[in-house]
Protein backbone atom coordinates (compact mmCIF):
# COMPACT_ATOMS: atom_id res chain seq x y z
CA UNK A 1 0.00 0.00 0.00
CA UNK A 2 1.07 3.54 -0.73
CA UNK A 3 -0.60 6.86 0.01
CA UNK A 4 -0.28 9.11 -3.01
CA UNK A 5 -1.54 12.46 -4.21
CA UNK A 6 -2.75 11.98 -7.75
CA UNK A 7 -3.75 14.65 -10.22
CA UNK A 8 -6.99 14.36 -12.16
CA UNK A 9 -6.35 14.20 -15.89
CA UNK A 10 -10.01 13.77 -16.86
CA UNK A 11 -13.36 12.76 -15.40
CA UNK A 12 -15.98 12.14 -18.05
CA UNK A 13 -19.25 10.29 -18.55
CA UNK A 14 -19.16 7.08 -20.58
CA UNK A 15 -22.95 6.79 -20.43
CA UNK A 16 -25.79 8.01 -18.18
CA UNK A 17 -24.53 6.27 -15.06
CA UNK A 18 -20.90 5.36 -15.70
CA UNK A 19 -17.88 7.64 -15.50
CA UNK A 20 -14.22 7.32 -16.34
CA UNK A 21 -11.69 9.01 -14.06
CA UNK A 22 -8.07 9.22 -15.21
CA UNK A 23 -5.44 10.01 -12.59
CA UNK A 24 -1.78 10.81 -12.95
CA UNK A 25 0.82 10.29 -10.28
CA UNK A 26 4.31 9.24 -9.53
CA UNK A 27 5.15 5.61 -9.28
CA UNK A 28 2.19 3.28 -9.74
CA UNK A 29 3.14 -0.30 -9.25
CA UNK A 30 -0.12 -2.24 -9.62
CA UNK A 31 -1.54 -5.23 -11.50
CA UNK A 32 -5.03 -6.28 -12.52
CA UNK A 33 -7.30 -7.17 -9.62
CA UNK A 34 -5.76 -4.70 -7.19
CA UNK A 35 -7.75 -1.67 -6.13
CA UNK A 36 -7.37 1.88 -4.85
CA UNK A 37 -9.11 3.93 -2.19
CA UNK A 38 -9.97 7.52 -2.94
CA UNK A 39 -10.54 10.22 -0.33
CA UNK A 40 -13.33 12.61 -1.23
CA UNK A 41 -13.98 15.98 0.37
CA UNK A 42 -16.90 15.89 2.80
CA UNK A 43 -16.98 12.10 3.10
CA UNK A 44 -15.50 10.33 6.08
CA UNK A 45 -14.44 7.01 4.59
CA UNK A 46 -12.33 6.49 1.52
CA UNK A 47 -14.02 4.78 -1.43
CA UNK A 48 -12.63 1.56 -2.89
CA UNK A 49 -12.42 1.26 -6.70
CA UNK A 50 -11.08 -1.37 -9.02
CA UNK A 51 -8.69 -0.16 -11.67
CA UNK A 52 -9.61 -0.42 -15.36
CA UNK A 53 -6.22 0.53 -16.72
CA UNK A 54 -2.73 0.90 -15.33
CA UNK A 55 -0.19 2.62 -17.52
CA UNK A 56 3.11 3.84 -16.14
CA UNK A 57 2.04 6.77 -13.97
CA UNK A 58 -1.59 6.79 -15.12
CA UNK A 59 -4.53 5.07 -13.47
CA UNK A 60 -7.96 4.77 -15.05
CA UNK A 61 -10.96 4.13 -12.84
CA UNK A 62 -14.40 3.40 -14.24
CA UNK A 63 -17.15 4.00 -11.69
CA UNK A 64 -20.90 3.86 -11.57
CA UNK A 65 -23.08 6.32 -9.71
CA UNK A 66 -24.56 4.22 -6.92
CA UNK A 67 -24.74 6.60 -3.95
CA UNK A 68 -23.92 10.02 -2.57
CA UNK A 69 -20.17 9.50 -2.80
CA UNK A 70 -20.06 8.45 -6.44
CA UNK A 71 -22.58 11.18 -7.30
CA UNK A 72 -20.21 13.70 -5.73
CA UNK A 73 -17.29 12.19 -7.65
CA UNK A 74 -18.82 13.23 -10.96
CA UNK A 75 -18.02 16.83 -9.93
CA UNK A 76 -14.28 16.17 -9.71
CA UNK A 77 -12.46 18.45 -12.15
CA UNK A 78 -9.33 18.26 -14.25
CA UNK A 79 -6.22 19.21 -12.24
CA UNK A 80 -7.89 18.48 -8.89
CA UNK A 81 -5.65 16.55 -6.51
CA UNK A 82 -6.92 13.42 -4.81
CA UNK A 83 -5.46 11.49 -1.90
CA UNK A 84 -5.39 7.87 -3.07
CA UNK A 85 -4.23 4.69 -1.38
CA UNK A 86 -2.78 2.57 -4.17
CA UNK A 87 -1.53 -1.01 -4.51
CA UNK A 88 -4.28 -2.49 -2.33
CA UNK A 89 -5.28 -6.15 -2.32
CA UNK A 90 -4.09 -9.12 -4.36
CA UNK A 91 -4.03 -9.70 -8.11
CA UNK A 92 -5.64 -12.06 -10.61
CA UNK A 93 -3.51 -15.13 -11.28
CA UNK A 94 -2.97 -15.16 -15.03
CA UNK A 95 -1.05 -18.43 -14.94
CA UNK A 96 -4.28 -20.33 -14.34
CA UNK A 97 -5.46 -19.93 -17.93
CA UNK A 98 -4.28 -20.69 -21.41
CA UNK A 99 -7.77 -20.00 -22.76
CA UNK A 100 -9.17 -17.42 -20.38
CA UNK A 101 -12.79 -16.34 -20.20
CA UNK A 102 -13.36 -12.93 -18.63
CA UNK A 103 -16.86 -12.45 -17.19
CA UNK A 104 -18.01 -8.99 -16.18
CA UNK A 105 -21.34 -8.04 -14.64
CA UNK A 106 -22.15 -4.35 -15.05
CA UNK A 107 -19.54 -2.08 -13.50
CA UNK A 108 -17.68 -5.26 -12.52
CA UNK A 109 -16.44 -5.31 -16.10
CA UNK A 110 -14.04 -2.45 -15.29
CA UNK A 111 -11.12 -4.40 -13.74
CA UNK A 112 -11.36 -6.99 -16.52
CA UNK A 113 -10.14 -4.39 -18.97
CA UNK A 114 -6.70 -4.26 -17.34
CA UNK A 115 -6.79 -8.05 -17.08
CA UNK A 116 -7.48 -8.29 -20.83
CA UNK A 117 -4.53 -5.97 -21.47
CA UNK A 118 -2.26 -8.21 -19.41
CA UNK A 119 -3.41 -11.36 -21.23
CA UNK A 120 -2.73 -9.62 -24.55
CA UNK A 121 0.77 -8.75 -23.33
CA UNK A 122 1.25 -12.51 -22.90
CA UNK A 123 0.05 -13.10 -26.45
CA UNK A 124 -3.26 -14.51 -25.29
CA UNK A 125 -6.50 -13.14 -26.71
CA UNK A 126 -9.22 -13.83 -24.12
CA UNK A 127 -12.92 -14.41 -24.61
CA UNK A 128 -14.83 -11.63 -22.87
CA UNK A 129 -18.43 -12.06 -21.71
CA UNK A 130 -20.03 -8.85 -20.50
CA UNK A 131 -23.48 -8.56 -18.95
CA UNK A 132 -25.43 -5.33 -18.46
CA UNK A 133 -28.99 -4.45 -17.46
CA UNK A 134 -29.66 -2.72 -20.75
CA UNK A 135 -28.01 -1.02 -23.69
CA UNK A 136 -27.67 2.30 -21.83
CA UNK A 137 -25.28 0.74 -19.32
CA UNK A 138 -22.83 -0.73 -21.83
CA UNK A 139 -19.35 0.82 -21.73
CA UNK A 140 -15.88 0.24 -23.21
CA UNK A 141 -17.30 -2.13 -25.88
CA UNK A 142 -15.03 -1.05 -28.72
CA UNK A 143 -12.01 -1.07 -26.40
CA UNK A 144 -12.76 -4.59 -25.20
CA UNK A 145 -13.23 -5.77 -28.82
CA UNK A 146 -9.63 -4.78 -29.57
CA UNK A 147 -8.40 -7.09 -26.81
CA UNK A 148 -10.62 -10.14 -27.16
CA UNK A 149 -13.65 -11.89 -28.61
CA UNK A 150 -16.54 -10.13 -26.95
CA UNK A 151 -20.04 -11.41 -26.19
CA UNK A 152 -22.47 -8.90 -24.69
CA UNK A 153 -25.68 -9.83 -22.94
CA UNK A 154 -28.37 -7.52 -21.57
CA UNK A 155 -31.15 -8.48 -19.17
CA UNK A 156 -33.79 -6.88 -21.40
CA UNK A 157 -32.25 -7.87 -24.71
CA UNK A 158 -31.83 -4.24 -25.75
CA UNK A 159 -28.25 -4.99 -26.82
CA UNK A 160 -26.45 -8.19 -27.78
CA UNK A 161 -27.84 -11.45 -26.47
CA UNK A 162 -30.83 -11.46 -24.16
CA UNK A 163 -29.96 -12.89 -20.75
CA UNK A 164 -27.25 -12.59 -18.14
CA UNK A 165 -23.67 -13.80 -18.06
CA UNK A 166 -24.56 -17.02 -16.28
CA UNK A 167 -27.42 -17.97 -18.63
CA UNK A 168 -25.22 -17.23 -21.65
CA UNK A 169 -22.40 -19.30 -20.20
CA UNK A 170 -24.79 -22.20 -19.71
CA UNK A 171 -26.35 -22.07 -23.19
CA UNK A 172 -23.46 -21.04 -25.44
CA UNK A 173 -20.53 -23.27 -26.03
CA UNK A 174 -17.61 -21.13 -24.95
CA UNK A 175 -14.18 -22.70 -25.12
CA UNK A 176 -12.16 -21.79 -22.02
CA UNK A 177 -10.11 -23.41 -19.27
CA UNK A 178 -10.35 -20.86 -16.45
CA UNK A 179 -12.66 -17.88 -15.97
CA UNK A 180 -12.08 -14.54 -14.26
CA UNK A 181 -15.20 -12.83 -12.99
CA UNK A 182 -16.17 -9.57 -11.37
CA UNK A 183 -19.72 -8.40 -10.79
CA UNK A 184 -22.66 -8.60 -8.39
CA UNK A 185 -22.45 -11.18 -5.59
CA UNK A 186 -25.47 -13.04 -7.03
CA UNK A 187 -23.65 -13.48 -10.32
CA UNK A 188 -20.44 -14.66 -8.67
CA UNK A 189 -22.36 -17.14 -6.54
CA UNK A 190 -24.19 -18.57 -9.55
CA UNK A 191 -20.90 -18.82 -11.47
CA UNK A 192 -19.12 -20.58 -8.62
CA UNK A 193 -21.98 -23.09 -8.34
CA UNK A 194 -21.93 -23.77 -12.07
CA UNK A 195 -18.16 -24.01 -12.51
CA UNK A 196 -15.57 -23.85 -9.75
CA UNK A 197 -12.56 -23.37 -12.01
CA UNK A 198 -12.42 -19.62 -11.84
CA UNK A 199 -11.30 -16.56 -9.98
CA UNK A 200 -13.78 -14.15 -8.47
CA UNK A 201 -13.12 -10.52 -7.67
CA UNK A 202 -15.37 -9.61 -4.75
CA UNK A 203 -16.77 -6.33 -3.55
CA UNK A 204 -17.56 -5.36 0.04
CA UNK A 205 -18.34 -2.32 2.11
CA UNK A 206 -14.99 -1.40 3.67
CA UNK A 207 -13.80 1.01 6.28
CA UNK A 208 -10.02 0.98 5.92
CA UNK A 209 -9.26 -1.05 2.76
CA UNK A 210 -5.87 -2.23 4.03
CA UNK A 211 -6.53 -4.96 6.53
CA UNK A 212 -6.89 -3.13 9.83
CA UNK A 213 -10.59 -3.05 10.65
CA UNK A 214 -11.91 -6.51 9.69
CA UNK A 215 -14.95 -4.79 8.18
CA UNK A 216 -14.89 -6.82 4.97
CA UNK A 217 -14.04 -10.35 6.15
CA UNK A 218 -15.77 -13.17 4.30
CA UNK A 219 -15.87 -16.84 5.21
CA UNK A 220 -13.90 -19.18 3.00
CA UNK A 221 -13.14 -22.89 3.13
CA UNK A 222 -9.75 -21.85 4.52
CA UNK A 223 -11.14 -19.65 7.29
CA UNK A 224 -12.02 -15.96 7.44
CA UNK A 225 -10.32 -13.78 4.83
CA UNK A 226 -10.41 -10.04 4.25
CA UNK A 227 -11.70 -8.91 0.86
CA UNK A 228 -9.29 -5.95 1.06
CA UNK A 229 -6.17 -7.85 2.06
CA UNK A 230 -6.21 -11.55 1.14
CA UNK A 231 -8.65 -10.58 -1.68
CA UNK A 232 -10.36 -9.06 -3.54
CA UNK A 233 -9.58 -11.99 -5.87
CA UNK A 234 -10.54 -15.41 -4.53
CA UNK A 235 -10.66 -18.85 -6.05
CA UNK A 236 -14.26 -19.76 -6.95
CA UNK A 237 -13.99 -23.03 -5.04
CA UNK A 238 -12.95 -21.42 -1.74
CA UNK A 239 -15.61 -18.75 -1.17
CA UNK A 240 -18.44 -19.73 1.18
CA UNK A 241 -21.46 -17.81 -0.10
Amino acid sequence: MKEQNLKVVSNKALNDSTYELVLKGGDINMSSGQFVEIKLDNFYLRRPFSVAKIQKSFLTIVYKIVGQGTKEMTKICENDNLSVLTELGNTFDLDKAKKPLLIGGGIGSAPLFQLAIEFNERGIRPTILLGFRNEAEVFYLEKFKKLGDVIVATDDGSFGEMGNTVSILKTKKIDFDCYYACGPMMMLKALAEYNSNGQLSLEARMACGFGACMGCSIMTKNGAKRVCKEGPVFSADEVVF
Binding site: N42, Y44, L45, A207
Partner: peptide, 17 residues
Amino acid sequence: YGNPLPRIAECPAGLIN
Protein backbone atom coordinates in the same frame (compact mmCIF):
# COMPACT_ATOMS: atom_id res chain seq x y z
CA TYR B 1 -15.55 -14.99 12.67
CA GLY B 2 -17.82 -12.17 13.83
CA ASN B 3 -20.93 -10.79 12.17
CA PRO B 4 -22.11 -11.24 8.59
CA LEU B 5 -21.39 -8.46 6.07
CA PRO B 6 -22.08 -5.57 5.76
CA ARG B 7 -20.29 -4.62 8.95
CA ILE B 8 -19.58 -1.01 8.04
CA ALA B 9 -21.80 2.02 7.45
CA GLU B 10 -20.51 5.50 6.78
CA CYS B 11 -21.64 8.63 8.62
CA PRO B 12 -20.89 12.29 7.91
CA ALA B 13 -18.30 12.50 10.71
CA GLY B 14 -17.47 8.88 11.39
CA LEU B 15 -18.55 5.33 10.78
CA ILE B 16 -20.63 2.58 12.29
CA ASN B 17 -19.01 -0.82 12.65
